[in-house]
Write a protein that binds this DNA or RNA. Structure first.
Lengths: 208, 208
DNA sequence: TGTTTTTTGTTCTCCTTTTGTTCCATTTTA
DNA sequence: TAAAATGGAACAAAAGGAGAACAAAAAACA
């Protein structure tokens, strides 16, 4: 994930922040890293930021902050702490593989009000096919495991056993329609036996 | 994040407040910081306030107070853990009143990875003016308190002291543009002194 | 109670220092 | 030798200090 230098700098930032309560200046980081120019630091900081490890406000002095990390709890069922819940982040949707195949160790913590009973998991949205209802590329969606769903709800559907998508479900007799929310995509209609509902969309989270 | 001087002053204020129960006067802070003029203190106090570390009542003597921090977020460094943190849900945006005026007792719990340092609050989105970037009517947005923002970020802005909106901010010299993300709405341009930034959008949550 | 004095906070201008950003030439590395 | 990393300088912006004049609040006084 991080290059050795990025890692070294990240640890320095982290240490300075905890010990002194003040984020290091570019000059200080330059000295620590043994560089002769601040421009190198600027590059390292930018990459740390684009990888999501730190945040920083442009043109502000000593304005780095560490992005809080999740503990990696490998668990399938929700773990209830006092007031919060971690659920597994199982992968990206629209990646073209069944969800079972891409389970990871990642978890994401979710506000409890977003979940009801049952088993939940999270997915990262890829693509813009549900843009019209405010589900954007990169969003994290919270899914409640279910094998059927009310008409008109947004579901995770497995088509022909290998393609997973997030679409609005419409049932018409023996066929089901998977309807995107983007005029650039078409509604696809399948016979009921080709589509397996894997979960119902119950929540969405996004970070800026 | 704080600069060394801001940090030093903040600790002094905190210490004085806990030990003596009264906040230090500008004169006392001036002496502690080794300055010859109060204006520098005023600057530091303002920065601490705009960064959300303290609060103060204008034109009142010894009226500083420390902004309470979340239990699981340390003063200067967010601790990684799985607990959600609760932040106040202060009302609806686009409701037409300054945020300060509509504080409620409601809170909403938020996954920690969504927040960094500083004070955060949540708002319920009303209207469709930011639909284009996936911010829909009824969504809950997480806002970090700030009084300025990098160009191009989405902010909570108070216009003419009474109208609050969530829009993308663009600064052009002495005027600011508040840009919606919906072709049905127009970008509005104001002189800088009519617009007050109240916070920066850092996260979004939605329940289905 | 109303008026003056004192304390305290605010604002402004001018200035220096610190810090972050950018761009391009150069070196190093694979 | 192409790609990646570094150096260096110029620049831009933010942070902060001094000093004075001013405004508001609190305290003292009559």
């Amino acid at each position: 994930m991080l290059t050795p230098k990025q890692h070294k700098l990240f640890q320095f930032i982290e240490k300075t922040l905890t010990e002194k309560g003040v984020s290091p200046s570019f000059e200080e980081m330059k000295a620590y890293m043994g560089l002769k120019s601040k421009s190198g630091i600027h590059r390292l900081v930018s990459s740390l930021e684009s990888k999501g490890f730190i945040r920083h406000l442009p043109n502000q002095a000593r304005a780095l902050e560490i992005v809080p990390r999740q503990n990696n709890i490998a668990a399938f069922y929700p773990i209830a702490n006092d007031d919060s819940v971690s659920i597994p982040l199982v992968g990206k949707i629209a990646a073209g593989y069944p969800i079972e195949a891409v389970r990871t160790q990642d978890t994401v913590s979710v506000p409890p009000q977003m979940m009801g009973m049952g088993e939940h998991y999270a997915l990262t949205v890829e693509g813009d096919s549900m843009q019209g209802v405010g589900i954007m590329d990169g969003d994290t969606v919270i899914i409640k495991r279910a094998d059927r769903a009310p008409d008109g709800t947004i579901v995770v559907a497995l088509v022909d056993g290998f393609e997973v998508t997030l679409k609005r479900l419409h049932t018409r007799g023996h066929s089901v329609a998977l309807e995107p929310a983007n005029p650039a995509y078409q509604t696809r209609i399948f016979s009921a036996d080709r589509v397996e509902v894997q979960g119902i969309l119950v929540g969405l989270m996004r970070q800026y």
